[in-house]
């Protein structure tokens, strides 16, 4: 009787230990070390982002509505300030997103990943709120207004879900939600194509 109990206990302990180690391995799955040449998207993505930011931001640095790229502008007093805020915050979000998806940085400098992640979440949530406010003021019809409002809502929701996941130590969920958030963030780059 005692031997049977001991065997059962050992079996259960082994099962529990295996379950725990599998789950930890899955949660803390680290991208395998691969040379940059085998990740051909890292450098082009960073380059494209830097070029886009260098192209899109300068007209708004002077805070002169006449130099804005989107002309004509909706006749709302709050439109231009919110647009400029959104552009500045989104530029930071785009650059931070490039750092976040860089596997080498995640593996070698997790503290940098955490801090740039906090910056990304803060600016992405703020920028998406700005878009939610200015989207209904768009001049190009309901089609554009609905699309931009949906985009802003999904960007906000996916970023928040990714942040909640990492606070609850759900690493796999965090990666999935953040990838969706980055995809929505990079839609402004895709918009120009």
């Amino acid at each position: 009787m005692r031997r049977a109990t001991l065997i059962t206990m050992l079996g259960a302990m082994w099962t529990e230990e295996l379950s725990r180690s599998t789950s930890v391995e899955d949660d803390h799955r680290i991208a395998p070390r691969r040379p940059l040449l085998r990740r051909p998207w890292v450098v082009p993505l960073a380059l494209l982002t830097v070029i886009f930011v260098a192209y899109a931001v300068p007209p708004y640095l002077t805070l002169d509505p006449a130099r804005a790229r989107t002309q004509p502008m909706p006749p709302h007093a709050s439109y231009y300030p919110l647009l400029v805020t959104h552009i500045f915050l989104s530029s930071i979000a785009l650059l931070a997103a490039c750092l976040q998806v860089w596997p080498w940085l995640r593996r070698s400098h997790p503290a940098v990943h955490r801090w740039s992640g906090r910056v990304y979440v803060t600016v992405a949530l703020s920028a998406s709120v700005c878009v939610m406010i200015i989207s209904p003021m768009g001049l190009y019809g309901a089609n554009q207004r609905v699309a931009n409002t949906m985009l802003a809502s999904l960007w906000f929701a996916t970023t928040l879900a990714g942040f909640r996941a990492i606070r609850q130590r759900r690493i796999a969920d965090h990666r999935q939600w953040m990838l969706r958030s980055f995809a929505l963030c990079f839609s402004i780059v895709a918009f120009r194509v």
């Binding site: 190009y140 309901a142 089609n143 554009q144 985009l151 929505l184 839609s187 402004i188 895709a190 918009f191």
Partner: peptide, 10 residues
């Protein structure tokens, strides 16, 4: 065209 682009981009 701008509306369609707004949808497709994301």
């Amino acid at each position: 065209a701008i509306g369609v682009t707004s949808w497709l981009s994301w």
